[in-house]
Each structure stands twice: as C-alpha cells, then as structure tokens.
Simulated scan of single mutants.
Amino acid sequence: MTNIRERDFRGLDLNLLVTLLVLLREKSVSRAAACLHLGQPAVSGALARLREWFKDDLLVRSKGGMQPTLRARELQAALGPALEEIQAAVSRVPVFEPRSATRTFLLGLPDWVDAWLLPPLLATLQQQAPGVKLSVVATDPFRVAEMLSGEEMDLAVGAFAEGPPWQRTRPLRSMGFRCVCRPGLVRGRQARLSLEQYTALPHLLVTYRGAFHGTVDEALAPLGRARRVAYTSPRFSSLPPVLQQVAALATVPEVLAPLWQRDFGLMSWPLPFDIAPFTVSIAHHRTRDRDPALQWLCGVIESLAVDEGRGAG
C-alpha cells in the first residue's frame, strides 16, 4: 500500500474503470448501460470522460459494433484481474475455521484469571484449534483500556470498571469471594468462620495500587468492624506459599479456593458477612467487532466461564 501514488488517481472516479470494462465486454453503449443499470446518456458521458483521461478513443464504431483500440485492450488485460481482486476483497465475508486456522492472540489476564481459565482454555484450543497460539500478557482493571488502545492485547478477561465508549465489554459470570488459610489456623469444626475469627487474624491483600484498604474493608465498615492487612501484593499467585507458613487469612475470588486447596493443601471458608459479588467480563476494542477469529475466541471463553461456574456451584 505504501507504493500507491495518490496524485495519480486525482480526478479519476474509479467507478469509471468498471464502466470501461463493461463497455469493452459488451462493445455497445446501450448494452453496457443495461448491465450497469444506468441511462445511456450517463454511460456515453462516462466514455467521454474515459477518453479524455486516457487520451485515446478506447472504443471506435464499426460495422460489427464498437471495437476496442490497442490502448483499450491493454487496459482490459491489466484492469480486469485488478478489479476482480478488488471485488473479491470488498465482497468477501470473513470466516474463521478453527480446525485449520493459524492465528496468535494476545490475551490479557490478571494472574487469578490465568490460574482459573487458562488450563481449560488451552485444552479446548488444543482440541478445537491446534494451530491457534495464545500469548498471555499481565493486565489489571486500571490498565485494560490503555492496553487495548495501544494494541498490547487483543482481548482481556477480568473484573473491569466501565471503559471508554470504544471498549466492548461482555459479562461472563458473577462471582463471589472465599476466605483461605492454612489448616489448623481456625479452631473447631464449624462450617463457617466467625466474624470475630475473621477480624482477629492478620490478612493478606492483593492490590494493584499498593493500597491497604479494599472492597472487603468497605463491607466491614458498616458492621463497625475492621481487619488488619499485614501484607499486600499485586499477584494472587504469591499468596499460597505465604499462607502455608504465615498465620493469616486471604480473601480471594471463589474460583481460586478449590485450586489452592488441591495444590497447596489450604482450607477454604465462606465469608462471615455479606459482600456484593463482582462481575467477570471480557473486553476488546470495537474495531474487533467483526473479527470472526476474535469473536470465536470470546465464545469459547464465555462457554468455559459458564461451565466452570456451574462446576463451582
């Protein structure tokens, strides 16, 4: 595209080239007008403009109808294939065939979504689209719009605030929280952790801006309670080894609790107070609305999120 000299097209209506090819095929102004659904005067006027542009008669009247000049034949040979390619490009409906596709997606995930969705997603892609590759990049709620706008990722999955008008956000599922700690930290065999136990122990908090205050603290305040946050990290993946050794609690998205219970031997408890669930969404730029490959991947992720949600229930 960088080789196109725009000035060479100045003053030329490219529709005239279509008219020229139809005239050369039909060798008749009246028949060409019928094919183009135009009046005969309009086609005659187009032929006059073409003659002026190319400085050639192009079509000459004879007993057998209008005959093309040598210049017209040269144009027909060159423009015919070019306009057929243009026609194919503008009329082609994009399709995506997962089984045969070779495509790389930049997928933005916070690390907790990575742990939750990436294993089943990769297994699904291996089965349904073996030529598709994923490159996972770290993101968080505060960087989604910037990273999508800068094409640092094609798609993001997580808990995001409402973005700019061009950001397409599709809710995947609602999700709550669970409290996680090492075995033996909470005494007794009760099915629920008490509010006193919850607030008496130190807490580990994941925050993307280094704050020691979060959603949980906002939910505790109306109850006249507070917790002591002893440690913050921008990564959920850093918590399990700490929880194994430190007498502390962590309140995490509910999908992490069974994973950490299985992989790290941690215990999981419902929260002893009400807290609003959050929404996990998928986000992309509106310029990708008609990208069939990206929309297919969105559908796969949506199905997995729903299935995983049923499993958690």
Rank of each mutant, 00 (worst) to 15 (best):
E85M: 14
D217F: 07
R31N: 09
H37Y: 14
E151F: 09
S149V: 11
L223F: 15
E85Q: 11
S238A: 12
K55H: 15
F273G: 13
Q245C: 13
G39Y: 10
S91F: 06
L249M: 06
E6Q: 15
F264V: 11
L172I: 09
D13V: 04
L118E: 00
L23A: 01
A33I: 04
A191E: 11
D111R: 02
Q295S: 08
P240L: 11
E302W: 05
L16A: 02
G11F: 06
P270Q: 12
V43K: 03
Q245R: 14
L118R: 02
L23Y: 01
S149P: 00
L70C: 09
E146I: 10
G265C: 10
G309R: 08
Q190I: 11
R5Y: 13
R99F: 07
A226L: 12
E6A: 12
V136H: 00
L59H: 07
P98T: 05
H284M: 13
Q197Y: 02
F160V: 15
A145Y: 00
G311H: 09
E74Y: 09
P258H: 03
G150V: 10
P41T: 05
P240H: 07
V132P: 02
V242Q: 08
A33T: 00
A48N: 09
R170C: 11
A77C: 09
E152Q: 11
I275D: 05
N3P: 04
S281Q: 15
M153P: 08
E218Y: 09
L106H: 02
G224D: 10
Q126N: 15
R235D: 04
L109Y: 01
W112S: 04
V60D: 15
L58F: 08
S268M: 11
G45N: 14
P130D: 11
T279H: 13
A72W: 05
L23I: 03
D263E: 13
K63W: 06
W296I: 03
R286V: 11
C181K: 01
L256V: 03
L155V: 14
A33Y: 00
L59N: 08
L16P: 02
